[in-house]
């Protein structure tokens, strides 16, 4: 078992609780030991950063320092947005010792200090780079060859590429496809795979946000996908939760099930749909279960 400092993020504890439970359900089988960083704050999700970068960087440095205090070096997150925001904060902090010292001053009252040794990795990076896809394949008891899955990366796990290490690890742009293949399903390429789901402007400009949901889910369907899989709970909230509104906006049915990454793994590992929280989705996941020959 490899041990990680676990950062689940706010949304897997709020609007998408099935992401949290499905992660816990697959972690043991994958040999991933998760020790949650108790008391870690929200990353700021790019929103707090609008009040100045230092506020968000301080909150994230606090989380990194907590993980270091736990004696761990890698933070595992299941949220692309948290991945992106923490990676950028870490990039700024470790590349500027004066800035790091300034931020550490803010952490002193709590007895924390960040030394700059933390690496932040999303579950999908850990799967490919540390667990290994051979291990994932070995755990598959229910291959789903008839299931066509469109990967939806969203923004923060790919951009900006320098802070996210994409320039050094260009393969990260295709990890979802590799995981989909590893669980015995077929990845579907479609134009929206790396675009924005629209969630950040959902409240500010709902029509635009919903149009993005409609475009991506409809496009995935047009390209033959039975489901989409995302590494980001915010994308899930929008693509799943606002899909009925997107369908109404377009005046046509979409009915595209949206899976969280660990749910796709869990189905292939033979974990029950109930334990994976598939009943908690807004858009029915029954077509996925039918294609995967899973009885509920």
């Amino acid at each position: 078992m490899s041990k990680y400092a676990f950062y689940p993020g706010c949304v897997s504890r709020g609007g998408t609780p099935e992401l949290y439970t499905s992660t816990i359900a697959v972690a043991d089988r994958l040999g991933i030991e998760l020790e949650e960083i108790i008391g870690a704050a929200c990353t700021g999700a790019g929103v707090l950063q609008e009040k100045g970068l230092k506020l968000g960087d301080t909150l994230n440095a606090r989380t990194f320092a907590m993980a270091e205090r736990m004696g761990l070096t890698t933070i595992l997150t299941i949220c692309s947005t948290c991945q992106g925001v923490m990676s950028q904060a870490n990039h700024r902090l470790v590349n500027d010792p004066d800035y790091l010292a300034e931020v550490n001053e803010e952490l002193k009252p709590e007895g924390l200090e960040y030394t700059g040794r933390i690496v932040v990795k999303h579950l999908v990076w850990v799967l490919v780079e540390e667990v290994g896809l051979d291990k994932v394949k070995s755990l598959v008891t229910n291959p789903m060859p008839d299931l066509k899955v469109a990967p939806f990366y969203g923004c923060y796990i790919l951009r900006p590429s320098d802070a996210l290490g994409i320039d050094e690890n260009p393969g990260r742009e295709y990890y979802l496809e590799r995981v989909i293949e590893a669980v015995g399903s077929e990845p579907v390429n479609f134009p929206g795979r790396t675009k924005c789901c629209g969630f950040p402007i959902l409240m500010i400009n709902e029509a635009n946000s919903t149009a993005m949901v409609g475009n991506h889910t409809h496009s995935a369907k047009d390209h033959g996908a039975d489901a989409m899989v995302t590494p980001c709970p915010l994308c899930h909230l929008n693509l799943d939760g606002y899909q009925p509104k997107a369908a109404a906006q377009r005046g046509e049915k979409i009915d595209m099930p949206i899976l969280h990454l660990p749910q796709l793994l869990g189905l292939a590992f033979g974990i029950s749909p109930g334990e994976l929280g598939l009943g908690k989705h807004i858009v029915s996941t029954k077509p996925v279960l039918d294609k995967a020959s899973i009885r509920t």
């Binding site: 706010c10 704050a41 929200c42 707090l48 500010i204």
Partner: peptide
Amino acid sequence: TIGSRHVDSFARSVARAGWLDETML
């Protein structure tokens, strides 16, 4: 505007509870 209130509400909930209150946001 909705945009500026979005930032303020986000900050308020994280400052109070340490994490985001999605509903109040």
